[in-house]
Design a protein around this nucleic acid. Structure first.
Lengths: 192, 192, 192, 192
DNA sequence: GTATAAGCGAGACGGTACGTCTTGTCTTGGC
DNA sequence: GCCAAGACAAGACGTACCGTCTCGCTTATAC
């Protein structure tokens, strides 16, 4: 028994999959603003109540549909050279934010979080970007002997390309190798 | 005469002011999501058509209502010490993004721009953050002799606190003096 | 000016007519139970809000759509012979209740009134059957010198065929001439 | 064994009783319109399928729940005086239609039958009112030597108070003694 | 001074999503 | 094989907002 009692008809896995698939398709086709719970249900061939039963709003459906992809796309294999590891991570980050479906979902949710506390809480429950950067940031902090916290160092690494892309600038103008260098320099303790 | 012919009743300045005032109040009271053209018109005591006649959507009204405040809040007087100038700018930026009404409007619009091309174009028409940083970034670039473009340097300065705040972290954890130092170090050419 | 202020767009007479026409058609096509406000709006090519703006529920729309027809169908020209007047009225009544569209609407509303106080109040606002019988009943009362009130006499006249039809019996079995005779006999004061 | 096979779990008498009890309570509490199969099942503490297994709709449940009470309330002991028998029956009829729970159920079902053929068929399967009146009407026909059929005579007796109550008039205004007299007069052959 | 024209508040219009409700069916495990 | 629980697809409920439209009124310039 998965749920508490085991009584009643169990949740339909096929309905769940259909909804997640539908929301993914619809985000690409009509965009976030035109994404509606009604539309999701109809596209998935599912009753509206079934969608509402398991997710409160379109943000939750979208989050569940994209979180796994997001984590996957942002995970880079650990390499030998820390500098290359940073560059590889930044490449993945830029690709995710500017070209991936899951990244489009993330940007939409990030945007919604600016004016919807529920969505903000949803995103805060799993710091996808911070987690994805954890390994390379940790390694860089260790290597540099910086006094910066993990959080501060993460903002230093992700912040510049994040700002660049979210303010609508072209991702092509980003030089990840240079960003990695700048990050390392910024990390070094002032005295050295 | 402002418009071509000058014929007909001229635009009511009081209606315009009432709308801009109403949108400001409503953003604070009900939030961006619950902000509606209908609500704005009713709050302003104005016909709905009057709002639609001059702005196409709530984002445009909000932009016009907050852009002037935004520019004002982000302008810092030039000082003698460049390092202090950077810190003063970062302080203003953090205050704007995390505590100001105009900043709340900016974050809402920035979020909406992630999934609405019209809003993205609206924000792109005036790069408020980039402009506000132009003077201090320019000065820092000149002083450091960096090869970075103005755009790249701007992302380096604004990116970290921008990421920090837009991903929902507390603004209190931001140390602007440290950020200024890191920015200067990152800016220095590799060879020096 | 018809309404209080004369301000705002006036009510659309074509929308009103389309709704009343649609409800009439739909009652015949799908029956009262399957009649819905949504269906009426769609059939009329009208927004749902427009229906709700002017009528609270399907009973009100149906009532307005059928009341005029009902009154028309139940009005019989006054004749010379009272006995023939009674028969003519009963014929009209039986035809109305058992074969007319407006009568089907009336039966549906009468039924709904049994378990919906709003509909009961709606029907009570205009006693269509009682009014239609008023003239012949009045004449019969005058001629017979009965002590019965108008209301009691009306129930005596309408009751038997009303019961017959509303309890699902065939209208063909009704002998209106005989009913008229019985009504006159029942009306006579006991002592005569 | 009641059913053919006797295999499987037998029908739960307690579930049946709980459903009939629940529907009775709910009719009084929320009225016919708000009575739902779902609500009945929940109130009875019974699975919805169990309700659907034995009754097809709320009308059937309600009919079964009230038919026995109805017959009981409408049966009047035969007396010596036919005139008093008629009055006693009319008193029971008026009380039933205007004040009894079972009568409220009957009026609701009668109303529903005006626009639901299934409910009409259900009511037609057992002519509760006609049956209850059979004895007194039969006796009156025999005594008067009328040529009227049992059905016609029944309509003559029940029709007036039936019309009065179902069209929403007050039951207090009904004078059953007078109605009995009128019925007897109407029944008499024209020639006598 | 009298057209002509455009802006004004009000509010109805056709559409459509919202989140909730009930429908009748289906699918569990337990009795 | 009946039972309670509860998920399922379907679709109506009444409300809200969308962007457009049609009113009568007001306030300008242009003739």
């Amino acid at each position: 028994m998965v749920d508490g009692s085991g009584r009643g008809r169990p949740r339909s896995e096929s309905a769940r999959a259909a909804v997640l698939h539908a929301v993914d398709d619809l985000l690409v086709e009509v965009g976030y603003a035109a994404l509606t719970m009604k539309g999701i249900a109809e596209r998935a061939g599912v009753g509206r109540q079934t969608v509402y039963r398991w997710w409160s709003n379109k943000a939750e459906v979208l989050y569940e549909a994209s979180a796994i992809d997001a984590r996957h796309e942002l995970s880079v294999p650990a390499g030998d050279d820390p500098r290359e590891g940073l560059k590889a991570y930044l490449d993945a980050l830029v690709a995710f934010l500017s070209r991936s479906h899951a990244g489009a979902a993330y940007r939409a949710l990030m945007g919604e979080a600016q004016h919807d506390a529920d969505v903000a809480a949803l995103l805060a429950s799993r710091d996808i970007l911070g987690e994805s950067a954890a390994a390379v940031v940790e390694e860089a902090r260790r290597a540099s002997g910086t006094t910066l916290s993990q959080e501060q160092a993460t903002a230093l690494l992700i912040g510049p390309p994040f700002f660049h892309i979210l303010t609508g600038r072209s991702a092509d103008a980003i030089d990840t190798e240079q960003l990695a260098d700048q990050f390392v320099r910024a990390l070094n303790p002032p005295g050295t």
